[in-house]
Design a protein around this nucleic acid. Sequence first.
DNA 1: CTCAGTTTGGACTATCCCCTCCAATCGTGG
DNA 2: CCACGATTGGAGGGGATAGTCCAAACTGAG
Lengths: 196, 196
Amino acid sequence: MNRGMTAKGAATRGRIVEAAAQLIREHGAADTSLDDVRAASATSKSQLFHYFPEGRADLLVAVAEHEAAQVISAQMPWLDDLTTWESWQSWRGAVLRHYVELGDRCPLGVLTAELGKSSPQTRTVVSRLYDTWEAALARGAQAKGIDRPFEVARHILVTIQGGVVMLRATGRVAYLETGLDAALTPLAPGGSSPRL
Amino acid sequence: MNRGMTAKGAATRGRIVEAAAQLIREHGAADTSLDDVRAASATSKSQLFHYFPEGRADLLVAVAEHEAAQVISAQMPWLDDLTTWESWQSWRGAVLRHYVELGDRCPLGVLTAELGKSSPQTRTVVSRLYDTWEAALARGAQAKGIDRPFEVARHILVTIQGGVVMLRATGRVAYLETGLDAALTPLAPGGSSPRL
DNA sequence: CTCAGTTTGGACTATCCCCTCCAATCGTGG
DNA sequence: CCACGATTGGAGGGGATAGTCCAAACTGAG
C-alpha cells in the first residue's frame, strides 16, 4: 500500500521548489506568482496545491529551506578548515567570488531581505541558517586560538549579511569587500586581540 | 496665476507619503495596496494619481526619499560630533536604542531590504543615503585621527546594515549589538591600527 | 491482474488591485 | 466677483491572482 509520496511525486515537488526559488531570486518573491511557478515547472494548479496544501505560504517556506541549504552547501568546502590565516583568506576569496558572480540574484539576499520577515516559519529557517553558519565560523575562530572567538564569528556573519544586502540594493561590491577585510583583521597574524 | 501645487495640495501629498511609509514599515511594500494608502490617508483615488502620475512606482520612490530622510535625521544629532571615543560610544548607544525601539518596523530596514531593489530610482535613493552616511562617519573617523578612516567608516556602515536586516529577519538584536562593538574597536583608546 | 491511493489536467470562482476618467468643488490672483 | 487652474470624489474597466473542485490517468503492492 502506498503511503505518502512516490518518487515521481517527490520529483515533481522538487521541480516546483526549484522553479520557484529561481524565479524568486530573479524577480523577488512579491513579483513571482503561482502561475509563473506553474509555467516554469511545467506543472498544473492541482499539483501546486497537492504538494503545498496551504498554497503560497507553504511554498515560500519550502523555498526558504531550499535556499538556506544552498547557502550552507556553498560554504561547506571551506567551513571545516578555517584553522589558519591562509585558509580564512581563501574562504574570504571564495565568498567574494561567489557573491560577485551571483550579484543581486543570490539565495542569501532573498532570505535575509525578503523571506525572513514573511512568516514565522521562514523566520525560523533564516534564524537556523544564521546559527549554523555562525557556529561554523566560531569553530574556526576558536581553532585559530584568538580572543573572543564567538564575538568575532558573529561579527563576520553580520558583515557578510550587510555586504550582501547592500550589494543587492546598490549593485556595489565594495561594501562586502571592505567589510570582510575589516572583520577578518582579528584573525590576521599579530591581530589576535581586540582591545577593551 | 497658480503654478504647480498649492499649500493644501502639498499637505495632501505629504499625508499620502507618510501614510504609505507607515503602512510599508508595518506590513512591507508588497502587502501595501494603493487602496490601503488611500484609506489610511483619507484621500481618494484621483488624489493618489494626481500627485503621483505614474501611480505606485512614483509613490514608492517618494516613500524611499521620505524614509531616507528619516534615517539621516535620526542620525543628525550625533553625526557632527564623532570626535572622541566617548562621542562614538554615545552614538553607538543611540543607534542601538533607536533600532531596538523600532524593531522590525524601521525605515532603514525597509530601504535596505525591500525598496533598494524595486526600481532604478529607489536604488539611487538608497545609494545616496549610504554615501551621505558613510561620509559623515568617515569625517568622524578622520577627526579621531585613526588609520584608514574610510575603510573603518564603510565597515561600520556595513555592520549597521547587516545588524538591522538581521534584526528584521530574526527579531534578535544581538547581531547589531555585537557587530557595532567589534566594528568600533579601531576607534577605541589604544585600538587605532588595524593590521596589514 | 486488481484496485486503492497518488498524481495530474484544467476549468471555474471570487477577490483584489492598478489605473482611467469625468464631473464637481475649491481657492486664489486679478 | 470672475475665471482658471488646482483639488477632490468616486464609479467602473480590465486584468491578474490565489485558491477550489472534480474527474481522469497513472502507479505499485499484493
